[in-house]
């Protein structure tokens, strides 16, 4: 059992998963996003290599309209 906070919301996962698998689970793997894991930016090339740990804090951001 894995507990991960994504954009401030708690999420539970039964099995270990990589960041890439998480993004696929959320159907946003092909979107233009940027990910911060525990305060550190995760380069896109690292998505498949980083396995999520219990208690991870993730921030996933996108571009939105703004001035």
């Amino acid at each position: 059992m894995l507990q991960v906070t994504i954009n401030g919301q708690l999420h539970h996962f039964d099995n270990p998963l990589s960041l890439q698998q998480l993004l696929e689970h959320m159907s946003i793997q092909n979107k233009r996003i940027a990910v911060e894991r525990n305060g550190e930016i995760v380069p896109r090339s690292q998505f498949t290599l980083q396995t999520l740990s219990d208690g991870d804090q993730l921030e996933i951001v996108v571009a939105v309209g703004g001035g």
Binding site: I6, N7, I33, I60, V61, V64, G66, G67
Partner: peptide, 14 residues
């Protein structure tokens, strides 16, 4: 053109 950076809306239609 300027853009803002915001949290993605989890659960929205991808």
């Amino acid at each position: 053109i300027t853009i803002a950076i915001r949290r993605t809306n989890i659960g929205q239609n991808p």
